[in-house]
């Protein structure tokens, strides 16, 4: 059979997932867009630090505290676990992992947002204090908005899962939601390293 002799269409699967599914690739390209947004924000952060600031954070501000962000960061990192469990579980046909994993991940994301809110309120400076404040509030706020979006998306997917919408073959919706979740966690690590570690380390 030569490469261009097409198989009968009936032999091809209808529900595709993973790299076979256009939706999976669509999510990947969307994440490329989103990564570029974070890259531009983080580049702006370092650009202003390098070109404008003599000390960082600017005079009068202490370096950001480490404990609360580390705690919220750990919660965010942990939330990837149940998502992975749900995603892998569905692939094996384990609907329970899906139905339990997603609500658990949502609970962790909600906890992350509460911790972040506490941290935001406790900050001794505002976005309008100086460019440093503008950067921290904007970058951290943009990331928190992403967590909120991932949370809402996971709620919808969880409702569909409880209604029995997904099957091991029809799972691309869960896969793409999981991809977005992993991305938000990874972006959170990059933001954490930029805002909390870099001022002390470099």
């Amino acid at each position: 059979m030569s490469a261009t002799t097409a198989p009968p269409a009936e032999a091809l699967p209808v529900e595709v997932s993973g790299t076979q599914a256009p939706l999976w690739w669509g999510m990947l390209v969307f994440l490329a867009v989103d990564s570029t947004i974070f890259a531009a924000l983080i580049s702006s952060y370092f650009y202003l630090r390098v070109t404008q600031a003599e000390t960082w954070p600017p005079a009068g501000l202490a370096p950001p505290g480490l404990l609360l962000p580390a705690l919220s960061g750990a919660v965010l990192l942990a939330s990837a676990g149940p998502v992975l469990w749900a995603d892998r579980g569905l692939r094996r046909g384990d609907g329970r992992a899906l139905r339990l994993g997603l609500p658990l991940a949502c609970a962790l994301a909600a906890l992350f947002l509460i911790l972040k809110a506490v941290e935001f309120v406790a900050r001794p400076y505002l976005w309008s204090t100086n460019a440093y404040g503008s950067l921290v509030w904007t970058i951290d706020g943009a990331h928190a908005a992403h967590v909120l979006a991932a949370l809402l998306q996971a709620v919808v997917v969880a409702v569909l899962a409880w209604r029995g919408h997904f099957t091991p073959r029809r799972r691309v919706g869960v896969e793409t939601a999981a991809l977005f979740w992993y991305f938000v966690v990874a972006a959170g690590l990059a933001v954490y390293a930029t805002l909390y570690l870099a001022p002390r380390l470099i």
């Binding site: 650009y47 070109t51 600017p58 976005w127 309008s128 440093y132 503008s134």
Partner: peptide
């Protein structure tokens, strides 16, 4: 009221 491009408050128009 942010200051990304305001050099008086640590921003930079070249950004």
């Amino acid at each position: 009221g942010t200051h990304f491009y305001n050099p008086a408050a640590g921003g930079d128009p070249l950004l």
